[in-house]
Structure formats: structure tokens, C-alpha cells
Design a binder for these strands. Structure first.
Lengths: 196, 196
DNA sequence: CTTTTGTACTAACATTTGTTAGCGTAAATT
DNA sequence: AATTTACGCTAACAAATGTTAGTACAAAAG
């Protein structure tokens, strides 16, 4: 069949991960088989194992790649001297952007993380919990400073994160508005829903 | 092992469907095996087939049970002579209530429908599309009547439906606020985000 | 009590799954 | 040019999957 084609300076492993994210998104982690993955990569199933350790390694690479990006952005935002609403807005814009431009990866991370194996599963859940707590803390701070309505911050975070994961439907839809417009609409509704 | 125990006047098939919804929610449709299902039902795997035709029959029973309830509620709401915002609020409250009280079923319908087989898959998608279109039409009507902000109605629907499917996290969370409070918070944020 | 129906069992099936072993060759390094 | 490394192949594996056939027996109907 010939070698796996790489482009720019990405490794063969990177190519496999990318294709895996697409496949896992489309079929779901459990339903996607290594033989299917091999086919889209253009190689026999066994050959994949020259580059990766296991199917589940693919999943945890995808999931932590996303999770780490999110955590990093949270670090950055927390350090800024801006209002709570501005922080929320910046976090949301980052999340929306990720969903629009790195769709497959983010989608897989969101929906398939439960198939992670230990110890990755526990690490992932902890990181996720931490992220949400920090997000909720920003909102509570905003409530204290009377920028934000008096609401349950945990519920607010839950709504926002899941609203964003709904961009999945936007990707599927035929008559899409463009990405920037989508972002503005989401910010209007979500931030508008918080503002006092 | 003895027979499947039923209660109230539910059939043995109903018991299997209920347990299937719980299992599919927890493991995902593909990852859940008929042998696992049999175990939680308290029977051997082969015995299930005295009551159901196939694994995928279970999925489509679950999915259409939910989808039909939603469609029915939409019929009801559309017929009412209320403002658009009141209609949106009623639909949201119904969806939230469903997520809080029929969690497993709704969750499975939301996340696992893609494993439906034809012709159920196409029917389901059509029904879903129809529901969203009707929801969006209510919002557009509200925009026309200046009750609602000028936003993309499709995006608004997408946000709301997915925000609600996020109640999944609420179920998982340890220190839950109660269901009614959750509902009020969600309405505040979501309806507040639309209101002009 | 007898017959019929419903339902559970065991055993087995054909597929599909992730993964490993061993081999050959093209690419990279010396 | 010679050697080593990287990487693809075929073949095979054990385990798990959904499902069917055939049998036995308890419950329901007569």
C-alpha cells in the first residue's frame, strides 16, 4: 500500500490521531474499529501498531490535547484584570472557536471521554471538575460584584458548556450561518442571560 | 433463574426496556452488551429474545418514546394563544422536567440515536428536524413581535436544546440543587438571554 | 385435571473485535 | 555502498458480540 503520507512536519502518528478523531466523531469510539481506521489512513490494521500502543491511547491523546488547551486558557483568563463578564465572554469565545475550528477533536473529547481507561479516566475527570469549578468561581465573583444576576453558578456553567457543545448541530446543518456570526449570536444569548 | 419480575401492570418487555435505557445511558449503546443487559434483568441473554426482536429494537423503542412525547407537547404549545416567550418557556420547562424525571430515556435518545438502523434512523432525524423548525418558528415569531432580541433563531434553538441536555452533569454532580431550583435557574438564564 | 401457552434454560453459531508475531523491503544513516 | 532502522505486509490469536435452535417446565386457560 505504501507509507502513510505526512504533510508539513507532522509525524505519521499525528496523521493517525487526526483520522482517529474524525472516525471516533462519526461512529463513536466503541463502534469505530481499528480496521476502519486503518482503511481511512490507507494501511492495514496491524500497521497502525508501529505507531501507536493501542486504540485507547488514541482516545486519551485526543482528550488530553483538548483538556490541556482549555486549562491553559483558564490560567490565562484568571490572570487578567478584567470584569467577570469579560472573563466569561473570553472563555466562551475560546470554547466556541475551538468547537468551530477543531471540531472533531473537541467533539470526541466531549462525548467519548467515558471510554478512557484508568488512570487517564480519573485524571481527566479531575481536570474537568477543576475547570468547571474555576469557571463557576468567576461567575460567583461576578454575582458578588453585582455584574451578574443572582443565579446558581454551577447551573450557569453547565448551561454554557453544553450550549457550546451544541455547535455539533451547527456543523451538521445545511444552511449554516458563518462561524463569526454564530459566535456573536451565542455570546448575545448566553452573556445576555447572565447580565443583570 | 426464575421469571422476570414485573410490577404494576407493566409487561416483562417494559422491564427490559427500562433496564436497557439505564444500561445504554451508563455504557453507551455499542458498549452495552446483551449479556450485561440480561444480568441486570436477572436472566440469561438468550431469554431476552422471548420478549424483544433485537438489540436495536430496544434503542428505537426508547428513542421514539421520547421523540413522540416531544412532538405531542409541541402540538399542544403551538395551539395555545400565548406570547412567544411564554411558549418558549413552556417548552423549556417540559424539556427540563423530562430530563430531570425521565433521565435515562431522554439521555439515551439524545446521545445514542445515531445507532438507530434504517428506516428508523431517517424517521427519527426527520422528526427531530421538524421539532427544531417549529421551535425556531416560535422564536422568529417572537422577534417579529419584538418580544425577543434580533438573533438567529436556529442558533437559539441549538443553544437551548443542548443546554438542557447538559442536565446530565447535574445528575452526576454531588451537591445537587433541587430539581425545581434548577429549572428556575435555567429559565432565568435562557429566557433572560432571549428577552429584548 | 389436561392442554396450551409463555418463558427460561443450555449450547452453539458466525462475525467482529483489538492485538501480536514474524517477515520483507524501502528509507535513512553511516 | 553497506548497514541499520522504520514501517508495511500476511496470518493468526483469543475474546466478545448478537442471535438462533431446541428443550424443559411453570403458569394460565379450558
Amino acid at each position: 500500500m505504501g507509507r502513510i503520507k505526512t504533510e508539513n512536519n507532522s509525524s505519521r502518528k499525528d496523521v493517525i490521531i487526526k483520522k482517529a478523531a474524525e472516525l471516533f466523531k462519526e461512529k463513536g469510539f466503541k463502534a469505530a474499529s481499528m480496521r476502519e481506521l486503518a482503511e481511512v489512513v490507507g494501511v492495514e490494521a496491524a500497521s497502525l501498531y508501529n505507531h501507536i500502543r493501542s486504540k485507547s491511547e488514541l482516545l486519551h491523546l485526543i482528550c488530553f490535547n483538548v483538556a490541556n488547551r482549555y486549562t491553559l486558557m483558564m490560567d490565562e483568563v484568571e490572570a487578567e484584570k478584567t470584569t467577570s463578564l469579560q472573563k466569561v465572554e473570553k472563555l466562551l469565545r475560546f470554547l466556541i472557536g475551538g468547537m468551530v475550528h477543531n471540531f472533531e477533536e473537541v467533539y470526541v473529547c466531549d462525548r467519548e471521554w467515558k471510554y478512557l481507561t484508568e488512570p487517564y479516566l480519573s485524571n481527566f475527570q479531575a481536570q474537568r471538575r477543576g475547570y468547571r469549578k474555576r469557571f463557576a468561581a468567576i461567575i460567583e465573583d461576578g454575582i458578588k460584584k453585582k455584574e451578574i444576576k443572582k443565579i446558581d453558578s454551577t447551573t450557569a456553567v453547565l448551561i454554557m458548556l453544553h450550549a457550546i457543545s451544541g455547535i455539533e448541530s451547527w456543523h451538521r446543518s445545511k444552511q449554516k450561518i458563518n462561524g463569526k456570526e454564530l459566535e456573536e449570536n451565542m455570546i448575545t444569548i448566553l452573556v445576555g442571560g447572565l447580565r443583570k
